[in-house]
Structure formats: C-alpha cells, structure tokens
C-alpha cells in the first residue's frame, strides 16, 4: 500500500485535473446564464455540486469516508 507522501504524489495531478473540470463546468454554466440572460429553471444540480465541495473542504474526516458521504449526498438529488 502507498504511504501518505506517495499517495499525494501519485494522485495529485489527476485530482488537479478533475477539480479543473468541475471549475470549468461551473464557468460553462455561468457563461450560458450570461448568454441566455436567465438561470436554469432548476439549479439543484449546481447547488448539489457546491454542497459536495463544502463537504470536501471540511478539514477533518476521521472515518476517511468522503466518497461515501458524497454518494449519500448525491443520492438526494433526483
């Protein structure tokens, strides 16, 4: 199994890429709002993503279960 430093070194760039994709998706949404002059009728998916990032940004996850928490969170969105 990987030690803590190896874990960060191995997966940092892929995680960076994935965060950039999320950032770009949210920018894409904002640009669409600007073009159309109105927000989506239902913004719950956007709100859900922002809430998911709040969960990730919490400093302590003693059970190391972020993925499980996000799956439970996303399950609330239809």
């Amino acid at each position: 199994m990987l030690n803590p430093q190896n874990t960060l070194d191995t997966y940092y760039l892929e995680a960076r890429r994935d965060l950039l994709e999320v950032a770009a998706m949210l920018d894409r949404y904002d640009e669409a709002v600007k073009r159309d002059g109105s927000k989506a009728e239902n913004e719950s998916k956007k709100d859900s993503l922002l809430k998911a990032m709040e969960i990730l940004a919490q400093p302590d996850h003693p059970d190391a279960n972020r993925a499980e928490q996000l799956l439970d969170h996303f399950a609330k969105i239809s």
Binding site: L13, L20, E21, A24, M25, D27, R28
Partner: peptide, 12 residues
C-alpha cells in the same frame, strides 16, 4: 489526458 488543457476546457 491529465497535465494540460482538456478537450472540454478547450471548447470552453
């Protein structure tokens, strides 16, 4: 695939 621009970001 990982380190520079992605196909979707390029289209953005």
């Amino acid at each position: 695939p990982v380190t520079k621009c992605s196909p979707r970001r390029a289209v953005d």
